[in-house]
Write a protein that binds this DNA or RNA. Structure first.
Length: 639
DNA sequence: GATTAGCAAG
């Protein structure tokens, strides 16, 4: 028993000796270097930075891998100042690019750090100071320049320079530089280079190619790149869906979305955002609601929620927009701006301004887009004094310098309110050179207030800047036609015919059971045309008893009254309204989208049909919404 | 260590 007790401590001693022998056999690194490596991965950043300076003071060199990780940590959790601290350390203690691969790694990551903090010039200084550069170094600056505003040309110059320097661009380089192609010529050249380098089948390169074609307005080009692909990933699918949605082909975008699902991919936030944009563009509220169900699982994605909010606003469903807005876990300036513009476009200017006040009271700073929405609210409600107030004080109160679009809102505000002379004075007093958009706004106001001489002046100014503009000629002609000056009204048409131009026909569409039905003015080719015309005649009969008189003044041609009535009757929005009343579910609003602004006669028609049929009709034109209910419209007949 | 897709207005 005794011996047993005595042996126990000896065993412990032996064990301790063995372990100390192990330590001596494999000397542990300096404890602070080990800790430093760990801190560079796990953080916290301040502790890692403090240890870095301790190491330097002790004459110990941090290894390149840890330093690179530290830079990464700094990008994730720190500021540019933290980055500069690491940069200074590296300059004083190394490793530098000429120290070998490790040094190059560290310098590259520092350049990338500056780029990620938006400090492009620091990144370029870093680049200039590097005695050795590899493809990563070059790609870092190419990518940074390609994504910076107004520096895309430089990105392409760097691509040329790197080749001259004997460094071959790789898939990373190409996928970055493609976004810098601002002309079809550049894009074709870079696309050819990717093929030559054998990199055009890389998914990153391909999705950038698709995006680049689409952004230059060549949707077919993007589609070709997509179709030629053998292997696609989710981002490639998202690129092409986004391309269709951004180009205004909502139906195409949704078709591709279905194909993507058939191909076995499940959507992510990016997919859903683009699909929502497609629904928004086509006023497909029901399809949008279905997307909403999938949005629920991404309850922290603000971009996606903002897109959903915009969809409800632009589909004219303010109840849904409002409910969503209040439920959203976070809201940023885009969420607020979407609500301000959404309410204003739907004829709720006072509510829009109230939301704007609420936004300010919650400490959210408006930006230039918010102010466009605010001014839009003022101009569409005739709130001239408020508009002036916001325009004049936006610089002082919010630090936002009025830009072109804000000036345009002011011309609209004054013009709509009939203050045409003030509008002209405003244009002449602008510090900016007026562009065709501003003149077109003035021209629209001239048409509204039947001022032909000023309309002619505005149209001349537009045509000086854009000789092929159709809209200016159509608006000018319509202004003359409003005044029954048929000879003058004919001249712009003749000019258009001489140039081989045709007016864009009126087009309205409506979503019904996941399908979009399109109606074109005067075109009776829809399969249900016969029944639509019967129903149209019946409705006209009913609303005539409510006081409807076809307002033939909106037919802008010199024709006998009867023919004018016929032309009016087949306006696309009337056919869409009738089709809507024939098929819509009880109690649900009829939602219609139109490519041109609604005419006065169709406006009167819609008001009376909303009364006689007891239905809510929502029509969205390129600028705003009309909610017709019980014989009245949300625009208060002011549009 | 560097790369691709998604949100508000005009």
């Amino acid at each position: 028993m005794n011996s047993l007790f005595k042996r126990l401590p000896r065993k412990r001693v032996a064990a301790t000796r063995r372990s100390s022998r192990r330590v001596h056999a494999q000397p542990r690194p300096h404890p602070s270097l080990t800790t430093f490596s760990r801190l560079c991965v796990e953080g916290p950043l301040p502790a890692a930075l403090a240890l870095l300076s301790e190491l330097a003071a002790a004459g110990l060199r941090a290894d390149p891998v840890s330093l690179t990780r530290l830079v990464k940590l700094c990008v994730r959790h720190g500021t540019a100042d933290h980055g500069r601290l690491i940069h200074r350390h590296v300059e004083a203690h190394g490793p530098l690019p000429h120290d070998g691969a490790g040094g190059l790694f560290v310098s590259n990551s520092l350049a990338s750090m500056y780029a990620k903090f938006g400090l492009l010039d620091d990144a370029l200084r870093m680049f200039d100071g590097m005695p050795v550069r590899n493809v990563v170094t070059w790609t870092t600056v190419v990518a940074a320049l390609a994504s910076a505003d107004g520096r895309k040309q430089e990105a392409l110059r760097f691509l040329v320079a790197m080749r001259r320097d004997g460094v071959a661009p790789n898939a990373y380089t190409f996928s970055s530089v493609l976004g810098a192609c601002t002309t079809p010529g550049m894009l074709t050249a870079v696309h050819a280079s990717t093929v030559k380098a054998g990199l055009d089948s890389d998914v990153f390169v391909r999705s950038s190619l698709i995006d680049a074609y689409v952004k230059l307005g060549d949707l077919d080009g993007g589609r070709r790149v997509f179709d030629e692909m053998v292997t696609r990933d989710l981002v490639v699918w998202n690129s092409i869906i986004a391309g269709f949605a951004q180009s205004g082909d909502g139906v195409g975008a949704i078709e591709l979305f279905m194909r993507m699902k058939d191909a076995g991919f499940s959507s992510n936030q990016g997919t859903l955002t683009s699909v929502l944009r497609a629904c928004t563009g086509m006023v497909m509220l029901e399809a949008g609601r279905q997307v909403h169900a999938h949005v629920l699982k991404y309850d922290r994605d603000l971009i996606l929620h903002n897109a959903l909010l915009d969809m409800y606003c632009k589909c004219g469903s303010l109840e849904d927009a409002d409910a969503l807005f209040h439920r959203m876990p976070q809201r940023d300036v885009i969420s607020w701006s979407t609500m301000v513009s959404g309410l204003a476009q739907n004829g709720k200017s006072v509510e829009a301004l109230r939301v704007f006040d609420l936004m300010k009271s919650q400490g959210v700073a408006p930006n230039h887009v918010t102010m466009v929405g605010v001014l839009f609210a003022c101009s569409h409600a005739g709130l001239v004094e408020d508009g002036w107030h916001y325009f004049r004080s936006m610089k002082r109160l919010f630090g936002i310098q009025p830009e072109r679009e804000h000036h345009n809102c002011m011309v609209d505000l004054l013009g709509r309110a009939g203050k045409l002379d003030e509008a002209v004075e405003f244009i002449h007093g602008m510090s900016l050179e007026p562009d065709s958009v501003i003149w077109r706004t003035l021209l629209g106001a001239c048409r509204m207030h039947k001022n032909a001489s000023l309309a002619a002046y505005a149209a001349r100014e537009i045509l000086k800047l854009e000789p092929d503009d159709q809209g200016a000629r159509v608006l000018l002609s319509n202004t003359y036609a409003d005044l029954r000056q048929w000879t003058d009204a004919e001249k712009p048409w003749k000019a258009m015919r001489d140039r081989g131009m045709r007016k864009e026909p009126g087009r309205s569409w409506i979503e019904l059971e996941k399908r979009v039905h399109v109606f074109i003015a005067g075109d009776l080719s829809h399969p249900c045309s016969d029944t639509i015309i019967q129903e149209l005649n019946r409705l006209i009969g009913r609303i005539k008893s409510l006081g409807y008189v076809p307002q033939t003044e909106f037919v802008l041609q010199d024709l006998p009254t009867e023919q004018k009535e016929d032309l009016l009757k087949y306006h696309s929005e009337k056919m869409a309204i009738v089709f809507g009343t024939m098929h819509a579910v009880d109690g649900k609003p009829i939602r219609i989208m139109k490519n041109l602004r609604i005419c006065g006669d169709c406006h009167a028609f819609a008001k009376l049909v909303s009364k006689s049929e007891g239905r809510v009709i929502v029509i969205r034109d390129p600028v705003r919404f009309h909610h017709f209910q019980d014989g009245a419209c949300s625009c208060g007949d002011y549009w």
